[in-house]
Amino acid sequence: MRLNKRYINKIIVLFLICFIIPKSYSQNNTAINLFDSANYQYSKGNYEKAIQLYESVLNTNIEAAALYFNLGNAYYKNNQIGLAILYYEKAKKISSNDEDIEHNLMLANLKTEDKVNQLPELFLTNWINNIANLLSEKSWSIICIIMLCASLVMFAFYFSTNVVIFKKIFFYIALILFIKAIVSFFLAQHQYSKLKKNNSAIIINPSSNINSSPSEKSTKLFILHEGTKVDITDEDNDWMEIKLSNGNVGWVKKADLGRI
């Protein structure tokens, strides 16, 4: 029994280290200063200045949901709806369950000109998405590890005790925790892959021609206006093949798009 306890202690310490390490090194002072002065400019109504400062924070290669959200707000106030939507979508990608982001994105989308009918999502996909969106990739990963440890500790108890009733209880708890660990693993992976793949994009040019092939001379299929969300399906030099949520496909210039 005593040996067992010593191992648990070790595991706990290991976890504490896991949490502390990424948090401590990411705090960057210059970035925070830039961010604060950007917020100040925003509050004064100098949206263009605020946009510059927010962009300079992004240039230091760090990101935060709040940073994208604020930048989106600044673009919105500066009447650049396409860019506002792009940054709201970026914020949403990091913090998928934020009500403020949802609200502003909804308002920004009201200002877009194109109405693209969205194909309805499958019930199950929708359901999984909703559950996965409750927490971030990081949180699900940590939950997965905690559940795994707890489950193994319970198995250890199950092996240690000789009383039949305790054995049963420990076994079932351990089993449930283990299943939970597996579920959280997949949810974490779901969130992770969603973050990793960036094949969604927003039209940021006020009016973009969508051509039938990656060439200026090709037939113009349709026109999209800023703020429309598209999926990137292919790439060719300066051109991207996009697919709209209603199924339309065409080629657009890279510069007209902003990847989420």
Binding site: C18, I21, P22, N104
Partner: peptide, 28 residues
Amino acid sequence: IRYIKTNNVEFTSVNSYFFGSLIFYVGM
């Protein structure tokens, strides 16, 4: 639109994910 967020901002470096990182595998 809702006002900008000014407090409790958690910065991370771009493209740093916990899932799939070394610490994650060690933890697992």
